[in-house]
Write a protein that binds this DNA or RNA. Structure first.
Length: 576
DNA sequence: TGATAAGACTCAGAAAAGTATAC
DNA sequence: GGTATACTTTTCTGAGTCTTATC
């Protein structure tokens, strides 16, 4: 099928993600589902598991006990030692205590949760030791639950729901230095739940003895269920899986917007370079910020309410303290040194040579400011995006990330793929291209705990393989010598088989070495996020087709489901 | 009407669960 | 051939972006 140049939503018979157009803003006509699955009720601890306060056994009321178990389960984790975590936890825990408990338990440090903690560890261990039959039984129950609650009907399709289970109560763990860490995430009840479905659908029934907060029929949104969470007061949603029509189509649209940017990006770049010279400070700031977003793939950087979240920034919210200007550094002129915490408190550290004009502008923006002042004091994401909207319909700051990620993949694949390499080497090239994007987008991960060890294991495998290969070569050599003397069919055959053995070992060795390189280069880099969210999957599909690499080598089952639209659509000459 | 808050959606890495491989 | 370990996939839910509603 060659309909690669269709616009999103354009009609092609028989292909589900191109099936139907809706009027502006309408997301569906029919929606029916069974509602959410609630967290299992709290099971009180056995009598034998004791809690001690100030060295003395103390029986806790069920509510206080439940919250105590949340803490006990996290005892091994670093954040139970953090001041803020402990303070927040203790404050919320006390709210769940009876008056009597409140009078006794006044100091968290005097609480001894070790028995609880050991009890849960033993339970985890027991779960691992379960018999095959018991494990199978649990698996079957999960499948039954998925079958009943994990799907919905949206228009003419049965679609997988992403998160049909309600988040269980527990202690909030933010990322980085979150001021609310340790607070109690309360149990969500049917009375908190808003159900969204179509008027002609069967409304899901709430658990016996309960009522929904509300049932609404809003086909301008895609969610099925929502509730308000108690830590930040924000709304949580149950939505569809990425394999669904509604998500797939949106994903496609995202990449089409990025492709439209490709057509006008040169013009936009010229424009912001002009704007570096503007008389208006606001315009200059906008132009420098946009330059960063384009060149460095920074996020937009919305304002955040102070004290409500970890202190992280994006481009527009950068502060003076986050950059350092070096007129000269390591033989390069006009270097900007970035050091700040971005989304999820992941550190962004980069030394970037910039154009003189950008450098001079930054000096100007920083004049007479304190470290904690905004670098771009005349700019925010609203102003920036409004400007971008004028440059291209649908253009916002994040489109630059998508565009630069995808174009980088395409370029890198072109550059790195050697036509006569074998499949494993091709896959290494793909991973390297993917890695270039992950580095651009600053997608990092904590090095795996067993990284050093697993590297050493791999190295010893390589060494062993090298020895095998040396042996095989020696054998081949002596077989050849024999053949030279004897010249009979039998010895010739032996030479052939020894040759094959050497070849096979060479291939195996090469595969291992490739694996080692790949793993080493990947130590602190997370490839998943870019693969899933930034790279136009059609580039990958085309590359696989062009070089005969099976798509399964690049995308696993879930990823193939998510990118089904692209796998169907792109042929080998697709260009982003 | 424009600033702000609420709402809806995408994107994020850690951890748990599942599977393959080594021993 | 069974079990421990390593590696991969899935789940989880927090943290962003951007749009829409509200005062």
């Amino acid at each position: 099928s060659s309909h690669k140049d269709l616009e999103p939503g354009e009609f092609v018979a028989g292909i589900r993600w191109e099936e139907e157009r809706y009027p502006e803003g309408i997301k569906w006509k029919f929606l029916e589902h069974k509602g959410p699955v609630f967290a299992p009720p709290y099971e009180p601890l056995p009598e034998s598991v004791k809690f001690y306060y100030d060295g003395k056994v103390m029986k806790l009321s069920p509510k206080a006990e439940e919250v105590a178990t949340f803490f006990a389960k996290m005892l091994d984790h670093e954040y139970t030692t953090k001041e803020i975590f402990r303070k927040n936890f203790f404050k919320d825990w006390r709210k769940e205590m009876t008056n009597e408990e409140k009078n006794i338990i006044t100091n968290l440090s005097k609480c001894d949760f070790t028995q609880m903690s050991q009890y849960f560890k033993a339970q985890t261990e027991a779960r691992k030791q379960m018999s095959k039959e018991e494990k199978l039984k649990i698996k079957e129950e999960n499948e039954k639950l998925l079958k009943e609650y994990g799907f919905c009907i949206m228009d003419n399709h049965r679609e997988r729901i992403a998160n049909f289970k309600i988040e269980p109560p527990g202690l909030f763990r933010g990322r980085g230095n979150h001021p609310k860490m340790g607070m109690l995430k309360r149990r969500i009840m049917p009375e908190d739940i808003i159900i969204n479905c179509s008027k002609d659908a069967k409304v899901p029934s709430p658990p016996t003895g309960h009522k929904w907060k509300e049932v609404r029929h809003d086909n301008k949104v895609t969610w099925l269920v929502s509730w308000t969470e108690n830590i930040q007061g924000s709304i949580k949603y149950i939505m569809l899986n990425p394999s669904s029509r509604i998500k797939g189509e949106k994903d496609w649209q995202k990449y089409e917007t990025a492709r439209r940017l490709k057509k006008c990006v040169d013009k936009i770049r010229n424009q912001y370079r002009e704007d570096w010279k503007s008389k208006e400070m606001k315009v200059r700031q906008r132009a420098v910020a946009l330059y960063f977003i384009d060149k460095l793939a920074l996020r937009a950087g919305n304002e955040k309410e102070e004290g409500e979240t970890a202190d992280t920034v994006g481009c527009c919210s950068l502060r003076v303290e986050h950059i350092n200007l070096h007129p000269e550094l390591d033989g390069q002129e006009y270097v900007v040194e970035f050091d700040f915490l971005g989304k999820d408190s992941i550190r962004y550290y980069n030394k970037v040579p910039v154009e003189k004009r950008v450098f001079k502008n930054l000096q100007l923006f920083m004049e007479n400011k304190q470290p904690e002042d905004d670098l771009f004091d005349r700019l925010n994401t609203g102003i920036l995006n409004k400007h971008l909207q004028d440059l291209m319909e649908g253009l916002t700051a994040k489109v630059f990330r998508t565009y630069n990620a995808s174009i980088t993949l395409q370029q890198q694949l072109k550059e790195l793929t050697a036509p006569d390499e074998n499949i494993p080497a091709k896959i290494l090239s793909y991973n390297r291209a993917n890695r270039a994007v992950a580095i651009l987008c600053n997608h990092q991960r904590a090095p795996p705990k067993t990284f050093e060890k697993s590297m050493m294991n791999l190295q010893s495998k390589i060494d062993a393989k090298k020895e095998q290969l040396a042996d095989a070569r020696r054998d081949l050599k002596s077989a050849k010598a024999d053949a030279k003397v004897l010249k009979d069919a039998k010895t010739k055959k032996v030479v052939e088989s020894k040759k094959k053995a050497v070849q096979r070992l060479e291939e195996q060795l090469m595969k291992l070495e490739v694996q080692a390189t790949d793993r080493e280069e990947n130590k602190q880099i997370a490839l998943g996020t870019s693969k899933l969210n930034y790279l136009d999957p059609r580039i990958t599909v085309a590359w696989c087709k062009k070089w005969g690499v099976p798509i399964e080598k690049i995308y696993n089952k879930t990823q193939r489901e998510k990118f089904a639209w692209a796998i169907d659509m792109a042929d080998e000459d697709y260009e982003f």
